[in-house]
Design a protein around this nucleic acid. Structure first.
Length: 511
RNA sequence: GGCGCGUUGGUCAAGGGGUUAAGACGCCUCCCUUUCACGGAGGAAUCACGGGUUCGAAUCCCGUACGUGCUACCA
């Protein structure tokens, strides 16, 4: 059996958005599952749209998600180079071969001439405005021109492209791993440009040549490529590579959450969620935050992406990369698009925060807290804090507000809940609590709680109201883990300090 | 316009001739918790429409509608 080689071939023009990462993920899963090779190749066939830094961005993104290519632009292997701009001569050679064998031709038309052809067709009431079997004889190309004229133009270096010559009334059929058998008539296929006037290939020529030369066995790409698949099948046929044609899978689209159409960067801005794995700074479109910066775990990110268009038929929803490799099967990928749901994406992250071992989670949370200016000197203390608050955190960045009171005295305290019910008795309770806590030798959770409750019954106050006030003193707001857990961690001195601060403020405002 | 692909609650979805049509997110109610979460128990909400085929259709076939993609010297 031939070993599996899949390729991920993004174009470095607009970063790498959700759909792109998912294609990469499915490629990776399929390759791993079959103990095959994952090839990363860069489709920079259009220099005018190439964005500087995008190639590195793609690599960084895939590394963040732990989809590490075995081969790629960073690690040239047997089939290098992987950048299409570096393979220019290879494509030209095959394009010329196709011309020589009568499957392609030179076309000398200017864009204006093509435009006027379309205008004319429109005027004639035609629906199909393509440069193809119906129109090529009216145009300026090596099929309509005499041999001498063609040679003269070529000798003069007249600008020209090479177009595929699509034959009439031919049924193209191929099998899609997701959609099953697909048939299309060549009559609706136009004579696509294969080699551009600048000598660069179009995508159509480049994929076919690269996949063949790099011995690709399985090719996954977005559904938007389905209509041009016949051109690629034709190229395999004309180049005599039919037996080497990879198996295709056209992945469904990821759609906007609210309306219609493919998810775009603008939708993210409009609806307030990221569409890029990492922060992406497009020189033309500006900065866009990524899932990483917003506090997503890569585990949750790929888990969420995998479930958008695939499931294993069971009720399981939380999968690690390893589990995905084990369970993945291409025939369970859906044929229809799925709307992206940011709420569900956050739910995945929440689940992963709860699932990850505390020590692992601490490593990822620590830099975020350090960046916030929190002082972390005791790793065990950090882990204790994290295990106390992790259920309350959906995003990694939530740990900032959920842990700040462990590191800093609250700057503002929400008094609205306590000041209205405040009285001298309660005031006296806390004064005595300070005294009792000052005398505490061991600073233990249960002792603190018992002491607190005994004192409350002495004062004949329901401990609920007091606990609420105590929480305000320690946390500053109506959230966080148990108050005695907090007191235990922040320590005697800090606990007493916080009670005093609030007490004096209340004294000023209430009495 | 032409061609392709698709259509199960608001969203992600299981199901592939006989089911009370799973489950998850979100929403609502209650329990737990004298906070916020976690957790637990419930609830509302679905087979796009019309024809066939069949004893029987969400499931198979055909139409229609709707959605979406392509229709560039972009990928």
């Amino acid at each position: 059996m031939k070993s599996v080689r899949v390729r991920f071939a993004p174009s470095p023009t607009g970063g790498l958005h959700l759909g792109g990462v998912r294609t990469a993920l499915f490629n990776y899963l399929f390759a791993k599952k079959n103990e095959g090779t994952f090839v990363l190749r860069v489709e920079d066939t259009d220099q005018t749209r190439f964005v500087e830094g995008a190639e590195q961005y793609i690599i960084d993104s895939l590394q963040w998600c732990h989809i590490l290519p075995d081969e790629g632009p960073m690690k040239p292997g047997t089939y290098a180079p992987y950048r299409q701009s570096e393979r220019k001569e290879i494509y030209k050679q095959y394009a010329e071969k196709l011309v020589a064998e009568g499957h392609a031709y030179y076309a000398f038309d200017t864009p204006e001439e093509i435009e006027s052809m379309r205008e004319k067709l429109k005027a004639e009431g035609k629906h199909q405005l393509q440069y193809g079997m119906e129109t090529r004889h009216r145009m300026k190309n090596s099929l309509s021109l005499s041999k001498e004229e063609t040679e003269r133009l070529l000798a003069e270096n007249a600008p020209h492209v090479i177009r595929i010559k699509v034959e009439k009334e031919e049924i193209i059929s191929f099998n899609d791993m997701i959609r099953g058998p697909i048939e299309m008539n060549t009559n609706t296929v136009d004579d696509k440009v294969l080699l551009k006037a600048d000598g660069m290939p179009t995508y159509h020529l480049a994929v076919v040549v690269d996949d063949y030369l790099m011995k690709i066995t399985h090719a996954f790409r977005g559904e938007e490529w389905l209509p041009s698949a016949p051109v690629h099948v034709l190229l395999y046929k004309y180049l005599g590579w039919e037996k080497e044609m990879p198996q295709w899978a056209h992945l469904p689209l990821i759609l906007k959450p609210d309306g219609n159409g493919k998810l775009s960067k603008r939708d993210g801005e409009r609806l307030g969620f990221p569409v890029f794995p990492l922060e992406w700074n497009d020189p033309n479109k500006g900065l866009a935050k990524g899932f990483k910066e917003l506090g997503f775990l890569p585990e949750a990110f790929i888990n969420m992406l995998a479930m958008l268009g695939w499931n294993d038929g069971s009720e399981q929803e939380i999968f690690s990369l390893e589990e995905l490799v084990e369970k993945f099967s291409i025939d369970r990928v859906h044929a229809h698009g799925a709307k992206f749901d940011y709420e569900k994406a956050k739910w995945f992250n929440h689940e992963w925060i709860k699932k990850l071992p505390v020590s692992d989670l601490a490593k990822r949370v620590k830099p975020i807290l350090l960046n916030e200016g929190f002082e972390i000197n005791d790793p065990q203390k950090l882990e204790n804090i994290i295990s106390l608050v992790k259920e309350r955190c959906t995003l990694l960045t939530d740990f900032i507000t959920q842990t700040s009171f462990f590191f800093k005295t609250p700057e503002t305290v929400d008094f609205t809940g306590i000041s209205s019910k405040w009285n001298e008795n309660k005031n006296q309770f806390f004064i005595e609590l300070i005294r009792a806590y000052e005398l505490a030798v061991l600073w233990k959770h249960d002792d603190l709680e018992n002491g607190f409750k005994e004192l409350a019954s002495v004062h004949q106050i329901k401990s609920g109201e007091l606990l609420f006030a105590f929480r305000m003193m320690l946390v500053g707001g109506k959230f966080g883990p148990g108050v005695f857990d907090i007191a235990t961690i922040i320590g005697k001195e800090e606990t007493i300090k916080r009670i005093r601060i609030v007490l004096s403020t209340l004294e000023k405002s209430t009495f």
